[in-house]
Amino acid sequence: ASLFRGVSPEDFETHIRRLFFTLKERWGNIPFEVVNDGEVTALAGSMGLEANRVLGVAMGTSQAAGYVNGSGHILPWLNELAFAPVDFRDDAPSDEWSGDIGCGAQYFSQQAVARLAPAAGFDFGKMPFPEQLVKVQEAMKEGDRRAEQIYETIGTCFGYSIAHYADFYDIENLLILGRVTSGEGGQVIIDEAETVLANEFPDLRIKLVVPDEKTKRHGQAVAAASLPALVPVLA
């Protein structure tokens, strides 16, 4: 996994491979379940919306995703849409880790904002991506048309990508969150995506939803706590 790419093979085998088993043992063998954060986000959204067929997409450092099916269950596969292609041009931008081109992380994350900023007219030099995002958000708040164009581009790409995701997922609700969607720019992304869906894919009935503050703050914790199977303790 990319998270451990700086760990030597020897240390990985010794300390990482059974990491979660070690944690469970050290925590007194409490009920323990390991689930991708995207799945927990989607489950929290499903619980908050009281609805199923939810695809959750978080636009943050990268693109995270999770899915709850029509029965209200998360599934055993990985929904790593950050590495799923959404741009099939031969000259699409490449992912620095996998080397794949046109992946979602380049379009729906702070990487996307940094990649689009020069085209919009910003010159941030070698400023770290999180700081570039803050600058663009500040510019958006001040009514800078350049910032708005960045969000419009992300939203347009997202609309077409949602339709592409619908080829593989049965989606009724799409939960959208993450730091890229914070502030006025987030609504621009949603508006542009909805316009694409309405004009280009009118047969799709997918509702774009932003989680409420309760779900943002506590939803993941509540959903995660519901996952482990609890064994009754006999007195």
Rank of each mutant, 00 (worst) to 15 (best):
A42E: 07
L43A: 04
L43G: 07
S46N: 01
M47P: 01
E50I: 10
E50L: 09
A51T: 04
A51W: 04
N52F: 10
N52V: 10
N52I: 06
R53N: 15
V54A: 04
V54R: 07
L55G: 05
L55R: 09
L55W: 00
G56D: 05
G56I: 03
A58R: 03
G60W: 14
S62K: 00
S62L: 08
Q63H: 05
A64C: 13
G66T: 15
G66M: 11
N69T: 07
N69D: 15
G70N: 12
G70K: 10
G70T: 06
G72N: 11
G72T: 03
H73E: 14
H73Y: 06
H73K: 11
I74P: 08
L75F: 12
L75C: 07
P76M: 11
W77I: 14
L78E: 12
N79P: 06
N79G: 02
N79K: 03
N79F: 14
N79Q: 14
E80T: 09
E80P: 04
E80H: 02
E80W: 12
E80V: 06
E80K: 09
E80Y: 13
L81S: 10
L81W: 03
L81G: 10
A82P: 00
A82N: 05
F83G: 00
A84V: 15
P85F: 06
P85T: 06
V86H: 04
V86I: 15
D87P: 02
D87C: 13
R89H: 10
R89Q: 03
D90Y: 12
D90E: 15
D91N: 09
A92H: 04
A92D: 05
A92T: 10
A92R: 10
P93V: 07
P93D: 03
E96R: 02
W97M: 01
W97I: 07
S98K: 04
S98V: 06
S98T: 15
G99M: 01
G99R: 03
D100G: 01
D100E: 13
D100I: 00
D100Y: 00
D100N: 08
I101P: 01
I101L: 06
G102I: 03
G102V: 02
C103P: 00
C103N: 01
C103D: 00
Q106A: 04
Q106M: 15
S109N: 11
